[in-house]
Simulated scan of single mutants.
Amino acid sequence: MLELFAAHGMTVSAVSCYENNLIGDLVERARVHEHLRACVRAAAALGVPHVGTFIGRDAGASVAGNLREAERVLPGLVRYADDHGVRLVIENCPMEGWHPDGYPGNLAYSPELWDWMFDLGLYLNFDPSHLLWLGIDPVEALRSVLVSGRVSHFQAKDIEVDERARNRFGVFGKAVTRARPEDTGWWRYRVPGRGQLDWNRIIDTLYCGGFDGTVAVEHEDPVWAGAWTRQGLEIAVETLRPLIR
Protein backbone atom coordinates (compact mmCIF):
# COMPACT_ATOMS: atom_id res chain seq x y z
CA MET A 1 0.00 0.00 0.00
CA LEU A 2 2.74 2.47 0.94
CA GLU A 3 4.54 1.64 -2.30
CA LEU A 4 1.39 2.47 -4.26
CA PHE A 5 1.06 5.85 -2.57
CA ALA A 6 4.75 6.60 -3.08
CA ALA A 7 4.50 5.75 -6.76
CA HIS A 8 1.88 8.49 -7.10
CA GLY A 9 3.70 11.03 -4.95
CA MET A 10 1.21 10.69 -2.09
CA THR A 11 1.40 10.12 1.65
CA VAL A 12 -1.20 9.30 4.31
CA SER A 13 -1.49 12.00 6.98
CA ALA A 14 -4.10 10.34 9.20
CA VAL A 15 -6.27 7.27 9.65
CA SER A 16 -9.92 8.17 10.30
CA CYS A 17 -12.07 6.70 13.07
CA TYR A 18 -14.84 9.24 13.51
CA GLU A 19 -17.15 7.53 15.97
CA ASN A 20 -18.71 8.48 19.32
CA ASN A 21 -16.22 7.55 22.03
CA LEU A 22 -18.68 8.45 24.82
CA ILE A 23 -21.82 6.84 23.42
CA GLY A 24 -24.16 5.84 26.23
CA ASP A 25 -24.63 2.23 25.07
CA LEU A 26 -21.67 0.58 26.82
CA VAL A 27 -21.61 -2.42 24.51
CA GLU A 28 -21.44 -0.13 21.50
CA ARG A 29 -18.86 2.02 23.27
CA ALA A 30 -16.63 -1.02 23.77
CA ARG A 31 -16.90 -1.77 20.05
CA VAL A 32 -16.02 1.84 19.18
CA HIS A 33 -12.97 1.80 21.44
CA GLU A 34 -11.75 -1.49 19.99
CA HIS A 35 -12.16 -0.06 16.49
CA LEU A 36 -10.16 2.99 17.54
CA ARG A 37 -7.38 0.79 18.92
CA ALA A 38 -7.37 -1.20 15.66
CA CYS A 39 -7.00 2.06 13.73
CA VAL A 40 -4.09 3.03 15.99
CA ARG A 41 -2.40 -0.29 15.22
CA ALA A 42 -3.02 0.20 11.50
CA ALA A 43 -1.58 3.72 11.62
CA ALA A 44 1.51 2.48 13.45
CA ALA A 45 2.01 -0.33 10.94
CA LEU A 46 1.77 2.16 8.05
CA GLY A 47 3.93 4.81 9.69
CA VAL A 48 1.00 7.24 9.81
CA PRO A 49 1.37 9.73 12.68
CA HIS A 50 -2.29 10.49 13.43
CA VAL A 51 -5.64 8.84 14.04
CA GLY A 52 -8.53 11.28 13.76
CA THR A 53 -11.57 10.78 15.98
CA PHE A 54 -14.21 12.55 18.08
CA ILE A 55 -14.70 12.94 21.81
CA GLY A 56 -18.40 12.28 21.32
CA ARG A 57 -21.12 12.51 23.94
CA ASP A 58 -23.67 10.46 25.85
CA ALA A 59 -26.82 12.31 24.77
CA GLY A 60 -28.61 11.13 27.92
CA ALA A 61 -26.15 12.80 30.29
CA SER A 62 -25.24 16.41 31.09
CA VAL A 63 -22.16 18.09 29.68
CA ALA A 64 -20.55 18.02 33.13
CA GLY A 65 -21.28 14.31 33.43
CA ASN A 66 -19.80 13.65 30.01
CA LEU A 67 -16.63 15.55 30.85
CA ARG A 68 -16.15 13.48 34.00
CA GLU A 69 -16.74 10.27 32.04
CA ALA A 70 -14.28 11.34 29.36
CA GLU A 71 -11.66 12.02 32.01
CA ARG A 72 -12.19 8.45 33.20
CA VAL A 73 -12.16 6.56 29.88
CA LEU A 74 -10.13 8.56 27.36
CA PRO A 75 -6.67 8.64 29.00
CA GLY A 76 -6.36 4.88 28.49
CA LEU A 77 -6.93 5.34 24.77
CA VAL A 78 -4.37 8.15 24.70
CA ARG A 79 -1.82 5.90 26.40
CA TYR A 80 -2.55 3.13 23.89
CA ALA A 81 -1.89 5.54 21.02
CA ASP A 82 1.25 6.88 22.69
CA ASP A 83 2.56 3.34 23.11
CA HIS A 84 2.22 2.90 19.34
CA GLY A 85 3.80 6.25 18.46
CA VAL A 86 0.48 7.68 17.24
CA ARG A 87 -1.36 10.89 18.17
CA LEU A 88 -5.12 10.99 18.62
CA VAL A 89 -6.35 14.17 16.92
CA ILE A 90 -9.86 15.38 17.71
CA GLU A 91 -11.86 17.27 15.10
CA ASN A 92 -13.83 20.24 16.41
CA CYS A 93 -17.05 19.32 14.57
CA PRO A 94 -20.10 19.78 16.85
CA MET A 95 -21.78 16.65 15.41
CA GLU A 96 -25.18 18.11 16.25
CA GLY A 97 -26.80 15.23 14.36
CA TRP A 98 -25.77 12.89 17.20
CA HIS A 99 -28.02 14.72 19.64
CA PRO A 100 -31.81 14.26 19.42
CA ASP A 101 -32.39 18.02 19.69
CA GLY A 102 -29.48 19.17 17.56
CA TYR A 103 -27.20 20.22 20.42
CA PRO A 104 -23.47 19.43 20.15
CA GLY A 105 -22.86 15.69 20.12
CA ASN A 106 -19.07 16.01 20.14
CA LEU A 107 -17.61 17.82 23.14
CA ALA A 108 -14.72 19.38 21.25
CA TYR A 109 -16.49 22.20 19.45
CA SER A 110 -15.08 25.27 21.27
CA PRO A 111 -11.72 26.66 22.44
CA GLU A 112 -12.79 26.12 26.05
CA LEU A 113 -13.14 22.39 25.38
CA TRP A 114 -9.85 22.25 23.49
CA ASP A 115 -7.99 23.38 26.62
CA TRP A 116 -9.79 20.66 28.58
CA MET A 117 -8.99 17.86 26.13
CA PHE A 118 -5.33 18.91 25.81
CA ASP A 119 -5.04 18.15 29.51
CA LEU A 120 -6.08 14.57 28.66
CA GLY A 121 -3.20 14.25 26.17
CA LEU A 122 -5.29 14.71 23.04
CA TYR A 123 -4.45 16.87 20.02
CA LEU A 124 -6.64 19.03 17.77
CA ASN A 125 -7.56 18.45 14.14
CA PHE A 126 -8.52 22.06 13.44
CA ASP A 127 -11.40 22.64 11.02
CA PRO A 128 -12.32 26.34 10.64
CA SER A 129 -15.64 25.70 8.89
CA HIS A 130 -17.37 24.55 12.08
CA LEU A 131 -16.53 27.71 13.97
CA LEU A 132 -18.17 30.35 11.78
CA TRP A 133 -21.75 29.15 12.27
CA LEU A 134 -21.10 28.84 16.02
CA GLY A 135 -20.24 32.54 16.17
CA ILE A 136 -16.52 31.93 16.76
CA ASP A 137 -13.93 33.84 14.71
CA PRO A 138 -11.89 31.05 13.05
CA VAL A 139 -8.76 33.16 12.65
CA GLU A 140 -8.76 34.36 16.26
CA ALA A 141 -9.44 30.83 17.52
CA LEU A 142 -6.62 29.45 15.38
CA ARG A 143 -4.19 32.15 16.50
CA SER A 144 -4.91 31.51 20.17
CA VAL A 145 -4.70 27.72 19.99
CA LEU A 146 -1.52 27.47 17.92
CA VAL A 147 0.53 28.65 20.90
CA SER A 148 -0.40 25.41 22.68
CA GLY A 149 1.51 23.32 20.17
CA ARG A 150 -1.42 20.88 20.16
CA VAL A 151 -2.73 21.58 16.63
CA SER A 152 -1.35 18.51 14.90
CA HIS A 153 -3.52 18.35 11.77
CA PHE A 154 -5.61 20.85 9.80
CA GLN A 155 -8.75 20.28 7.71
CA ALA A 156 -9.46 22.76 4.94
CA LYS A 157 -13.21 23.10 4.53
CA ASP A 158 -15.26 26.21 3.81
CA ILE A 159 -18.77 27.25 4.82
CA GLU A 160 -21.58 29.34 3.34
CA VAL A 161 -23.95 31.11 5.74
CA ASP A 162 -27.41 32.43 4.81
CA GLU A 163 -28.17 35.05 7.47
CA ARG A 164 -31.73 35.64 6.20
CA ALA A 165 -32.55 31.94 6.61
CA ARG A 166 -31.04 32.03 10.12
CA ASN A 167 -33.60 34.69 11.02
CA ARG A 168 -36.29 32.09 10.30
CA PHE A 169 -34.79 28.94 11.79
CA GLY A 170 -32.48 30.25 14.52
CA VAL A 171 -28.97 29.03 15.24
CA PHE A 172 -30.10 25.44 15.89
CA GLY A 173 -31.56 25.14 12.39
CA LYS A 174 -34.75 23.57 11.08
CA ALA A 175 -36.95 21.85 13.63
CA VAL A 176 -39.99 20.71 11.60
CA THR A 177 -38.78 20.22 8.04
CA ARG A 178 -35.22 18.93 8.55
CA ALA A 179 -34.61 16.06 6.10
CA ARG A 180 -31.27 14.93 7.57
CA PRO A 181 -29.06 16.03 10.47
CA GLU A 182 -26.92 18.38 8.40
CA ASP A 183 -29.98 20.04 6.80
CA THR A 184 -29.98 23.08 9.08
CA GLY A 185 -31.52 25.38 6.48
CA TRP A 186 -29.16 28.32 7.00
CA TRP A 187 -25.58 27.09 6.43
CA ARG A 188 -23.81 24.47 4.38
CA TYR A 189 -20.24 23.30 3.92
CA ARG A 190 -18.34 24.30 0.78
CA VAL A 191 -14.95 23.52 -0.73
CA PRO A 192 -12.29 26.16 -0.03
CA GLY A 193 -12.88 29.14 -2.29
CA ARG A 194 -16.66 28.72 -2.56
CA GLY A 195 -17.59 29.81 0.95
CA GLN A 196 -16.99 32.78 3.21
CA LEU A 197 -13.73 31.93 4.97
CA ASP A 198 -10.67 34.11 4.33
CA TRP A 199 -8.11 31.49 3.32
CA ASN A 200 -5.34 34.04 2.88
CA ARG A 201 -5.65 35.02 6.57
CA ILE A 202 -6.11 31.42 7.73
CA ILE A 203 -3.04 30.06 5.96
CA ASP A 204 -0.99 33.09 6.99
CA THR A 205 -2.04 32.47 10.61
CA LEU A 206 -0.84 28.88 10.33
CA TYR A 207 2.55 30.08 9.08
CA CYS A 208 2.82 32.79 11.73
CA GLY A 209 1.96 30.22 14.41
CA GLY A 210 4.71 27.85 13.27
CA PHE A 211 2.39 25.11 12.02
CA ASP A 212 4.27 22.67 9.79
CA GLY A 213 1.76 19.84 9.57
CA THR A 214 -0.71 18.68 6.94
CA VAL A 215 -3.44 20.82 5.40
CA ALA A 216 -5.97 18.23 4.22
CA VAL A 217 -9.03 19.15 2.15
CA GLU A 218 -12.28 17.73 3.53
CA HIS A 219 -14.87 17.67 0.75
CA GLU A 220 -18.47 17.96 2.03
CA ASP A 221 -19.71 20.47 -0.54
CA PRO A 222 -23.19 19.47 -1.79
CA VAL A 223 -22.77 21.54 -4.96
CA TRP A 224 -19.55 19.83 -6.08
CA ALA A 225 -20.56 16.32 -5.04
CA GLY A 226 -21.24 13.08 -6.87
CA ALA A 227 -20.04 13.25 -10.46
CA TRP A 228 -18.53 16.69 -9.71
CA THR A 229 -16.38 15.61 -6.75
CA ARG A 230 -13.10 15.80 -8.66
CA GLN A 231 -13.92 19.31 -9.89
CA GLY A 232 -14.65 20.31 -6.29
CA LEU A 233 -11.25 19.07 -5.18
CA GLU A 234 -9.62 20.93 -8.05
CA ILE A 235 -11.30 24.16 -6.90
CA ALA A 236 -9.91 23.57 -3.42
CA VAL A 237 -6.40 23.00 -4.79
CA GLU A 238 -6.62 26.11 -6.98
CA THR A 239 -7.63 28.15 -3.93
CA LEU A 240 -5.00 26.82 -1.52
CA ARG A 241 -1.98 26.11 -3.75
CA PRO A 242 -0.98 29.79 -4.24
CA LEU A 243 -1.03 30.29 -0.45
CA ILE A 244 1.07 27.28 0.59
CA ARG A 245 4.81 27.34 -0.03
Rank of each mutant, 00 (worst) to 15 (best):
E218W: 01
D137W: 03
D137Q: 05
L122C: 10
R87M: 08
V139R: 07
G173P: 02
R201D: 15
T214M: 05
D212Q: 11
R37I: 05
H130V: 07
D204G: 05
V89C: 12
L2C: 01
L131R: 07
G105R: 09
L46S: 06
L142G: 04
W228I: 01
M117I: 13
E238Q: 15
N106A: 06
W224R: 03
W114K: 05
H33N: 08
P100T: 12
F172E: 02
R201P: 00
F54K: 06
S144P: 01
A59E: 15
M95Q: 15
G56L: 08
E218Y: 01
C208A: 14
F172Q: 03
L124C: 13
Q196S: 06
G232Q: 02
R79G: 02
H99K: 11
L36I: 12
I244A: 12
L113E: 14
S16E: 13
V191K: 00
V40E: 08
V89W: 02
R68I: 07
G213Q: 05
N167A: 15
L36C: 03
D101N: 10
W228S: 15
H35W: 11
E34N: 11
I159A: 07
A44C: 05
L22C: 06
R188I: 03
L77I: 03
A179I: 06
E182K: 02
A108H: 13
T229N: 04
T53I: 14
G135H: 06
E238I: 02
R188P: 02
A38G: 08
G60W: 04
L67G: 06
I136M: 05
V40A: 03
F126M: 04
F118G: 02
R188W: 02
G173W: 03
R166I: 11
E34R: 15
I136Q: 00
N20Y: 09
G226I: 09
S110E: 09
F211S: 10
R79E: 14
T239A: 05
R57I: 03
F5H: 15
L240T: 09
